[in-house]
């Protein structure tokens, strides 16, 4: 058993103390965005878009680790508007924040699904990556992973242009189980649903990420075989199971 690293309560927001020097930002329209500013935008995005806050007070606990002057910088750059002690994202700021969240969570997926990091250890690396991944690389990662919709902890990954356009020309490494051909084998990378009932029923049948599965057939219903268990399921449930395809040669 690999040791689990305790993540703490901040983990859910994916915010880390800013590190490293400024870097030119190749996503936003300006290159004046610093890491701390990105961290702040990311946090504001999560708080407003996902936790439903309209305005965020400057002293929100989620922001406590960021320098006090960041909001002023953001306001000066038109990423937020200040209403007394409360901050509100502008359209531009929202866009940037969304980009950071997307890069961070994609990075987490890459680390856990493909590079086999343990959940918990991937966090720190992802925090580094989110600031340095270029748009092209982001798109490549997203495609490689099969346009995942959630991070390993189940938070939604904001879709990018590549997801919307269904750019699937690139052979993806992780794909919905239903996209394999009958008879093909794969290893479950993750199960892309937060529907508790669905997850629990699959785990009840002993189907977990990391298991090898074979797609037996797709029609009239999907039938998969995992170990000694054969299971029939709806196509949309099977589609939630994302697999890394196993070459016939490197099986077993």
């Amino acid at each position: 058993m690999a040791r689990r690293v305790r993540g703490g309560r901040r983990m859910g927001l994916g915010i880390r103390r800013p590190q490293g020097p400024h870097r030119p930002d190749d996503l936003g329209p300006t290159n004046r965005v610093t890491h701390v500013m990105e961290e702040m935008l990311q946090a504001l995005y999560v708080l407003t878009e996902e936790k439903g806050m309209e305005e965020v007070p400057r002293d929100a606990p989620e922001l406590s680790e960021l320098p006090q002057n960041v909001p002023d910088d953001l306001a000066a750059a038109d990423y937020i508007t200040l209403h007394g002690d409360r901050m509100r994202l502008t359209e531009l700021g929202r866009h940037l924040g969304r980009g950071v969240v997307r890069r961070h969570r994609l990075a987490e997926r890459l680390l856990t699904d493909v590079l086999d990091f343990d959940l918990g250890t991937e966090e720190e690396v992802a925090c580094e990556l989110e600031h340095i991944v270029s748009p092209e690389l982001t798109r490549a990662i997203c495609t490689l992973l099969g346009h995942p919709t959630t991070c390993p902890r189940g938070h939604p990954i904001p879709p990018g242009p590549c997801c919307a356009a269904h750019e699937r020309e690139l052979e993806t490494a992780v794909l919905p189980l239903t996209q394999m051909a009958p008879g093909e084998r794969g290893v479950i990378a993750h199960i892309s649903t937060v529907d508790r009932g669905r997850l629990d029923r699959l785990s009840g049948l002993g189907i977990f990420p990391g298991d090898e599965v074979m797609l037996v057939q797709k029609s009239p219903a999907c039938v998969i075989q995992a170990g000694e268990t054969t299971v029939a399921l709806d196509a949309d449930v099977a589609g939630d199971i994302r697999v890394r395809r196993l070459d016939v040669n490197d099986g077993e």
Partner: peptide, 22 residues
Amino acid sequence: QADFQRPLSHLIASTRREQVEH
């Protein structure tokens, strides 16, 4: 649960399963 968007039930089941697999 607030720490994870993935249901805790699944985290618990996964951990149990990992150790059983071991």
